[in-house]
């Protein structure tokens, strides 16, 4: 029993530090890849050229690509009560070259149940290209670094 407990704690600490390492590496990658990006393929009018940049010197505040793609902030992750009585939760999963932001709107009052939703946003970097996707609506943008 105690051995199992120790094993569980060890795995937990290990995976947490692994996740932090991924986050650090990914944010460093975004910093290195910051700059102007041109749209390559698009599926929606909201995809547009733009700058990939952190919005603040404090990288925890998040980063954006152009006008309408924003990931973050990575701090302040408490469940928020919305003005109309729903709840919103954001979670992040980092890989070395990608981040997945999951946003859930839930526990809305009965009259606003239709507003409950989830969006799973993935921003990934490969060389000098960046891709952004929202799984639930198949919204996809592909960018390449401008010269």
């Amino acid at each position: 029993m105690i051995k199992r407990l120790i094993l569980m704690i060890t795995l937990l600490i290990g995976s947490s530090s692994f996740a932090n390492e991924n986050k650090d590496q990914f944010l460093k990658l975004i910093k290195n890849k910051s700059g102007e990006y041109k749209l390559e393929k698009k599926s929606h009018a909201k995809c547009s050229d733009g700058e990939l940049t952190f919005v603040d010197e404090n990288q925890e505040k998040g980063f954006r690509l152009g006008q309408n793609i924003f990931i973050g902030p990575f701090d302040d992750l408490e469940i928020e009560k919305t003005e109309d009585g729903c709840k919103v939760e954001r979670t992040y999963s980092f890989q070395k070259n990608a981040v997945i932001e999951t946003v859930k709107i839930f526990s809305c009052p009965d009259s606003l149940k239709k507003n409950e939703a989830q969006s799973t946003k993935t921003l990934s970097v490969s060389g000098d290209t960046v891709s952004f996707e929202i799984k639930e609506t198949q919204f996809v943008c592909h960018f390449s670094r401008g010269k």
């Binding site: 909201k46 973050g72 302040d76 928020e80 919103v88 946003v103 939703a117 929202i134 609506t137 919204f139």
Partner: peptide
């Protein structure tokens, strides 16, 4: 709308999400 959790809202159609 690409993001159903963040539809444009209100007088000036800003982001719904505070974040």
């Amino acid at each position: 709308i690409p993001d159903r959790t963040d539809p444009p809202r209100g007088l000036m159609q800003l982001n719904s999400l505070k974040s």
